[in-house]
Write a protein that binds this DNA or RNA. Structure first.
Length: 505
RNA sequence: GGGUCGUUAGCUCAGUGGUAGAGCACCUGGCUUUUAACCAGGGUGUCAUAGGUUCGAUCCCUAUACGACCCA
């Protein structure tokens, strides 16, 4: 059996580890107290440029991962990175003593965690540095880091071993910091609008609230199958029934479908529901919220997405779905109320489409192929067909259209909202209609949820509801091409064989 | 599910039907203000996996695995 190179590199480090221990140094101590973060030092001493300015300062103590090492005989420079930033360390025989200098240099590898204390100074080239007086190994690394200049590019390794991506690529670190700021800003906004944050079940006896296939799991003691939720909708509405007038939830939904640059089987959704509001109110809420988030998380409402300049300043344009499809395809779906005439119109217009099974799916196809990709600037499309909107209230006097909108930006759907259907009898009919369509071989429907209907029968006030896909919002605001770039550990096919086998003799 | 592309050293990548290359990393030596440090020396590899064609395959063919992108 050939000893692999990675194993050879590892053996080299294991030797250093053993040698450290032999000399009475623990390579994995429990705790370390620091006086400063790296970025704090850079900021606090920005204006200290003269050597004398540092002389009265006490020693500073920092800790972090060593990311670069420049050895020059009796003195060496080290880059130390912590969670906040980078600081240069200077190790010198004269300060450390020859013995300690050798101890450090003989055992240190790039990737190790180190705690140091020493005197701040500026080098000839003007870089703030710490002249090390004392040091302690905080964690010895056994495997080498990716290359320092090109970083880690292999997409598969970046996703499977995200920690390496985070260590290597600043853009990755920044994208996830921005994601966190986005979610925080969203909470700040909703809290400011008096919404109550709640948590509802992920494990549900009946799934619903969206058109999607669920994941199924099993509870042993109850001996019953449960579904991972595909949306939060039906539980949040129960809370509206219960008198919580404004609620929201930010949580994971699960849809048992394909993966793409815009789809991950588990994804994060924000849903909010507001009593006595309608979909017009939710439109205003949406544009104000996302503009606020952009301002908080990015400091601007003017963003760039894959080369397109996008202005998020409200108000955003509104357009009916009918007009949008009419403009792009010349087809007025309201004039073709049956599947047959709609298909004929699509044929006459010689549109490139994929065959669909129902009238609503055909409308949806026209939307996704001809309209959606063109909606780069944020746009509300309103008034969707009933068939596509089983939980939305019908327009007054219309049997065809609902008070619903979807909001689009960057060529994809960001969110979805309705004036919520609160007529329990109508809701029951919608479930039953869906079941009939399912019998025609549709595929994804909301199974009838008797418990939810009971809640509606107790009375739900007029309510506006909104769902925003957080991952997609982050895609938009961080200018990333793929949802995998904004989910720390995106779903990948599991590896069957071991990637590495490190336990060979 | 279909198509295209990719998989070579720890990382980033070249390359060829005749026993494998660079830079970084690593190892040895030198160097007390460097910062992609530098100088001298060292290549550390199941060329994704399994078959096939061939005197000979990392390269050509087939299948498989994983990934990326496009289509469904």
């Amino acid at each position: 059996m050939t000893e692999s190179n990675s194993n050879a590199l590892r053996q080299e480090r294991l030797k250093k580890l053993a040698s450290l221990q032999q000399q009475g140094h623990s390579p994995y101590p429990t705790k370390f107290e620091r006086s400063h973060g790296a970025q704090q030092l850079q900021t606090d001493f920005e204006n200290h440029t003269e050597t004398e300015q540092f002389q009265e300062l006490a020693a500073v103590t920092v800790c972090g991962r060593i990311t670069a090492l420049r050895r020059m005989g009796g003195a060496s420079f080290l880059d130390l990175r912590d969670g906040s930033g980078r600081i240069q360390l200077y190790a010198e025989k004269d300060t450390l003593s020859e013995q300690n200098y050798e101890l450090l240099m003989e055992h240190l590898d790039i990737g190790d965690f180190l705690g140091v204390s020493g005197q701040l100074f500026r080098t000839k080239r003007g870089e703030l540095s710490i002249d090390i007086k004392n040091f302690q190994f905080l964690s010895k690394s056994l495997l080498p880091l990716p290359e320092k200049w090109h970083g880690l590019k292999d997409t598969e390794v970046r996703y499977r071993q995200r920690y390496l991506d985070l260590i290597s690529n600043e853009e990755t670190r920044e994208a996830f910091r921005t994601r966190s700021r986005i979610v925080t800003a969203m909470r700040t906004f909703l809290d400011g609008e008096s919404f109550l944050e709640v948590e509802t079940p992920v494990l549900q006896p009946i799934y619903g609230g969206a058109a999607a296939k669920p994941f199924v799991t099993h509870h042993n003691k109850l001996d019953t199958d449960l579904y991972l939720r595909i949306s939060d909708e039906l539980y949040l509405k129960r809370l509206i029934v219960g008198g919580l007038e404004r609620v929201y939830e930010i949580g994971r939904d699960f849809r048992n479908e394909g993966l793409s640059t815009k789809h991950n089987p588990e994804f994060t959704m924000m849903e909010c529901y507001q009593a006595y509001a309608d979909y017009e109110d939710m439109m205003r809420l949406t544009e104000n919220m996302i503009a606020f988030i952009a301002q908080e998380a990015l400091g601007t409402m003017e963003i760039e997405f894959q080369g397109h300049k996008i202005d998020l300043t409200p108000p955003w344009p509104r357009k009916t779905l009918r007009d949008a499809i009419l403009e792009e395809t010349g087809i007025d779906f309201l004039k073709h109320p049956t599947t047959e005439t709609l298909i004929q119109a699509i044929k006459d217009a010689r549109l490139k489409v994929t065959t669909q099974k129902t009238w609503g799916k055909w409308v949806d196809e026209l939307l996704s192929v001809y309209v959606e990709p063109k909606l780069i600037s944020p746009t509300f499309l309103t008034d969707y067909p009933v068939e596509l909107s089983p939980f939305a209230k019908k327009h007054d006097g219309s049997d065809t259209l609902t008070e619903r909108f979807e909001v689009f930006a960057a060529g994809f759907e960001l969110g979805n909202a309705y004036s919520e259907l609160n007529d329990p009898l109508d809701q029951r009919e919608r479930f039953e209609t869906e079941a009939k369509i399912e019998n025609q071989g549709n595929g994804e429907i909301n199974p009838l949820d008797e418990d939810f209907l009971t809640a509606l029968e107790h009375g739900m006030p007029p309510t506006g509801g909104l769902g925003i896909g957080i991952d997609r919002l982050v895609i938009l605001l961080t200018d990333r091409p793929s949802i995998r770039d904004v989910i720390l550990f995106p779903t990948l096919r599991p590896v069957k064989a071991n990637i590495q086998n490190k336990d060979s003799a």
